Simulated scan of single mutants.
Amino acid sequence: MSSNYPIMLRLEGKKVVFVGGGKVAERKISGLLCTGARVVMVSPETTEELQGLFHAGKIEWVQRQFSKGDLQGAFMVFAATNDKALNQLVKDSSDACQLVMMVDDPEESDFHLPAIFQRGRLSIAVSTGGASPTLARKIREQLEQGFDERYEEYLDFLFEKRKWIIKEVADTALKSKLLTAIASDEFLNSDDREGDFRRLYQERTF
């Protein structure tokens, strides 16, 4: 059995085509809205929620049946209809360089979506390799309890301090110690991370 390769994709400005406008497409489109992707939906009809996104200018809607030309320029494609033959046609119409997901056939898809949650910059994804999306969601819910809202501000702190350390600290050993120290529970739970960091840097108390 070959293993899937986990990856975080930058989709900003890239064309993502959805064939289908039902509830499944609605869920998956909702998860893409924050990525900056150009979302194009091809479907004669769609849900009220997706109509709202179209009227708000957040997605494009090609209101007709699918044709092969709809995939031109697409980076990623979702065959998200309740018609197995149509989903297969979408897959067959794609180019070799396009990533295609068929919602009714994970084994023939180029990728599948893990169960995810985010705390600001922190993203955690759980996958069972298509064996049980239900179990993946259950594990995600368990992880959510351990990574609470504190992590949003904490990750912003780590992001800014890492940039500063890399730019301002020349000593390699000190740089490594600082990066290790700010990733500790002490800084996660601190009420004054900036003050604690200044003291740590000035006193070199590792």
Rank of each mutant, 00 (worst) to 15 (best):
I29R: 06
K177T: 12
I166V: 14
F18H: 08
S2K: 14
S109F: 11
R204A: 13
G36A: 02
R199Q: 15
F206T: 01
F206N: 05
S190W: 00
I116G: 00
G21S: 02
I116T: 14
N4G: 12
E108F: 03
K167Y: 14
Q142K: 11
A37P: 06
K23R: 12
C34Q: 13
D110W: 12
T46L: 07
R10I: 06
S94F: 04
I182F: 04
G120R: 12
P44Y: 13
N87C: 09
C97N: 11
D105M: 02
E152Q: 10
E144A: 00
G36M: 02
L53W: 14
R10Y: 12
T134M: 08
Q202Y: 06
A56N: 10
I166P: 01
G31C: 07
A80H: 09
E203C: 03
V77F: 12
E153P: 14
Q72E: 15
V100N: 05
E45Y: 09
G129I: 01
R38Y: 11
A181Y: 04
V16Y: 09
L155A: 08
Q88P: 02
E168V: 08
G120P: 14
L32H: 14
I116L: 15
M8I: 15
Q65W: 07
A125S: 07
R64T: 02
S127N: 06
Q202D: 13
V16D: 03
F117M: 04
K91R: 15
K84I: 11
V19L: 06
D104N: 13
G69L: 01
Q202E: 15
K84S: 12
V24T: 13
G20D: 11
G69R: 04
P133M: 02
A173L: 09
P6T: 01
M76I: 13
Q63T: 04
G129D: 08
S94T: 04
S93G: 04
C34F: 11
E48C: 06
D191E: 15
D171R: 15
A37Y: 11
A181L: 13
R64N: 05
E144D: 04
V17E: 04
K15M: 00
G120L: 08
V19I: 11
L200G: 00
E149N: 08
V77E: 02
W164D: 12
K84F: 10
D104E: 08
I182L: 10
D83S: 14
V103F: 10
S176H: 12
V40H: 10
E45K: 10
P6W: 01
P106I: 07
L71S: 02
